[in-house]
């Protein structure tokens, strides 16, 4: 029973983070939702509720692979329209505030690598976990996270956005 409660806590803690991460990777709310669901299912099937496997980087690795699979399949199905990151505009029901729309536009202009690492950091993942997920040293994570923040800051300046 303790395992169930522990897993429930893990699920609750990670689901929004994972969704945000996937959303900013793919730019599609529905795809992000589906892959979030699929990632939890795959993680659960493979590892169950064992506490030592309730590790964010493990779950996010599954999600990254699932997203790559999805994008690869989608690309095969529609080579004329390769996948692009589409950030919802102000009319979207998903983003209602203008400032959110503005920051999402700026995020959409970041490189995929910067967007990924910044989303992970803002989502609360520890640098150690980010390093494990992206196969980077902690020192490298520190540099890249801050560089991504600075780039976003520049994009948000009036001169750019």
């Amino acid at each position: 029973m303790e395992k169930v409660a522990t897993y429930q806590r893990f699920y609750t803690d990670q689901k929004n983070r994972l969704f945000s991460y996937l959303f900013f990777r793919c730019g599609d709310r529905e795809v992000a939702r589906d892959i979030t669901q699929e990632s939890f299912t795959r993680h659960f099937k493979q590892y169950g509720t064992a506490q030592k496997t309730l590790i964010p980087s493990l779950l996010f690795t599954i999600a990254r692979n699932a997203l790559v699979d999805y994008q690869r399949n989608r690309y095969k199905q529609n080579t004329l329209n390769p996948p692009q990151v589409v950030i919802p505009d102000e009319e979207s029901t998903f983003i209602r505030k203008e400032e959110h729309s503005r920051i999402l536009q700026a995020m959409g202009k970041l490189s995929e690598q910067d967007r990924e690492i910044l989303t992970l950091a803002v989502g609360g993942m520890a640098y150690k976990e980010i390093g494990a997920l992206l196969d980077l040293s902690i020192a490298n994570v520190k540099v890249r996270v801050h560089r991504a923040r600075k780039t976003l800051q520049e994009l948000l300046s009036d001169k750019v956005i």
Partner: peptide, 12 residues
């Protein structure tokens, strides 16, 4: 902007 509620998910 990042915090979204995906309440319609199902926990395995």
């Amino acid at each position: 902007a990042l915090v979204h509620d995906v309440a319609d998910l199902e926990m395995p």
